[in-house]
Amino acid sequence: MNAAADVGTCEAVCPAAEVKLHSGSDIDSAGTEAGETDKTRANAFRFQREIVPQCACSAGASTGLSPIAIEDDMMLRTGDIIAADDGFRIAAISSGQKRSVLFRPLSKAEAQALGLSRLSSR
């Protein structure tokens, strides 16, 4: 994809949001052409800490989340844990000519060690 297509995709998913394209090898070091990095912004990674109702990406969404496949979420990083219908899974991402995402089940012991045993996967 090119920059214009990437901006168009972001605008389509969150039409009410200001769009700034950040690029880089990973989310922690991504920046704009002007040199601004995401982590220096006031609301950087806020989505990881809370759901902000007025920032919902679609008019019908009460959660503030955009309905995209987890495999297509470019914020997903190796080691991230997701809740699936059948339990927790840990992501492994490989990059190359085409990005691929694999998920392995997180054992009950691993989930308990991480404090996830008291959480439901639904």
Rank of each mutant, 00 (worst) to 15 (best):
S121E: 06
V19E: 00
Q97A: 15
S117V: 02
S117Y: 00
V7M: 07
R49V: 05
F45G: 07
P15V: 06
A16Q: 09
I93D: 02
I51W: 04
E18P: 01
S29H: 12
S107D: 01
A4F: 04
E71M: 10
M75D: 08
A42C: 01
A5V: 11
A3Q: 13
L114C: 03
A84F: 00
G8T: 07
G79F: 05
P15S: 12
A61R: 02
C14Q: 04
A42M: 12
F103G: 00
H22Y: 15
A84T: 00
S100E: 15
S58Q: 12
E33M: 09
G87D: 04
M74L: 15
T37D: 09
G35L: 12
A16K: 12
F88E: 05
D73K: 04
I93R: 01
D86K: 12
G31Q: 14
G31K: 08
K20P: 00
L119G: 00
S121G: 01
S62G: 15
N2K: 11
F103K: 03
L106W: 01
S58N: 07
A42Q: 11
C14A: 13
I70W: 00
I68C: 09
S94G: 11
E33H: 01
I81M: 12
Q97P: 01
A3W: 02
H22L: 15
R41M: 14
A44M: 09
D72N: 15
V13G: 08
S94E: 15
R104M: 03
G87A: 11
E36N: 09
L21W: 02
T37A: 13
N43G: 14
R118T: 09
A12N: 06
M1D: 12
S66T: 12
L119A: 07
E71V: 14
V101Q: 06
V52E: 10
Q112T: 06
I81A: 04
P105G: 07
G79C: 05
R89K: 15
L106V: 10
D72R: 14
I70G: 04
T78E: 10
D72W: 00
A111V: 05
R46S: 13
K108L: 13
